[in-house]
């Protein structure tokens, strides 16, 4: 039975994280999950809106949620930051006074009845049925969740805050081996790349170094911001930390796609700044 969602891609999935968007859509379709892009969606406000104005930080995602509510469909989110903001809004608006304020700002009635789910939950749940045709045997991957996907636990309702397992289970189901490591939810530098690139390089490097130390050959993510920080800063890491070895960073949907029989081109593996093809080739997956 096909499950139907209002799909909220978020801004970056249409630009710098296109591969996440496209792999998500293909994988979901093949897995029988119906994603219909939310009509005329707007930015969730990301890390900026709430930093500057709490009310704006609630109102921007509330507009999107209201659209979905009107459709009567639950919202599926791919981007971890968008998921965080939408979930946070829906949790915070449990407060009637805040909801009233937000409705004043929106100029329409939002009842806060819509359910928000991340694709990790949707694809990783028992109900989803994706067919693995090409096992990624021998690939050692570190699942990296980042901060906003899981924190705070009681609001995100996704997984454990320090040792989440959702993505690990999906990656393992593809035949790959997931490594045990300690930095699954450490911060990568988040929204600082423009203003403080050196902080991002420092923090992201720590994450990749631990992944390597614990035997991983690649890192798997579910967040465009994490992906960007971990992927595009590796040249800078090499310059700052001699001996650093580059490591491919994949979206979990990309690995799913490969295991489900899609080609590397269909999964846009070539869109990363850090080479993601060689490893897959050396393992004979492509």
């Amino acid at each position: 039975m096909a499950v139907s969602y209002a799909y909220y891609p978020g801004c970056t999935l249409k630009t710098s994280a296109r591969e996440f968007d496209e792999s998500t859509l293909k994988v979901c379709k093949a897995a029988g999950i119906e994603l219909t892009e939310l009509a005329d969606w707007n930015c969730c406000g990301a890390s900026s809106a709430h930093s500057v104005s709490p009310l704006l930080g609630l109102s921007l995602p509330a507009r999107d949620l209201q659209t979905a509510e009107a459709l009567g469909k639950p919202v599926a989110v791919a981007c971890a930051m968008c998921f965080h903001r939408l979930k946070h809004a829906s949790h915070a608006l449990g407060d009637a006074a805040k909801l009233k304020q937000v409705n004043q700002v929106l100029g329409k009635e939002f009842r806060n009845t819509v359910k928000v789910e991340h694709l990790l939950t949707i694809l990783g749940s028992n109900g989803s049925s994706y067919q693995v045709t090409k096992k990624l045997e021998g690939l050692k991957a570190a699942s990296y969740y980042g901060c906003v996907l899981v924190r705070p636990k009681e609001v995100m309702e996704l997984d454990d805050e320090d040792n989440p397992q959702l993505m690990d289970r999906i990656v393992a189901s593809l035949g790959a081996e997931t490594v045990e490591w300690d930095f699954k939810t450490e911060c990568c530098g988040a929204s600082l790349p423009l203003s403080k690139p050196e902080v991002v390089v420092n923090l992201s490097h720590k994450i990749l170094r631990q992944a390597r130390q614990r035997g991983a050959e690649c890192v798997v993510v579910a967040c465009p911001m994490c992906h960007s920080n971990l992927d595009i800063r590796q040249k800078a890491m090499k310059a700052a930390y001699p001996g650093f070895q580059e490591m491919p960073v994949y979206y979990f949907t990309q690995l799913m796609g490969l295991a489900m029989g899609f080609s590397a081109a269909e999964m846009h593996i070539d869109k990363h700044l850090t080479d993601g093809l060689s490893l897959l080739k050396s393992k004979g997956f492509i």
Partner: peptide, 26 residues
Amino acid sequence: KLPLLPHTTHNMEEIRNIFKRAEELE
């Protein structure tokens, strides 16, 4: 990864009202 032109939301009036009212209320 970097399209030169922006994607836009169509109902921009609604978006601008959100900004305006949020600031006023705050």
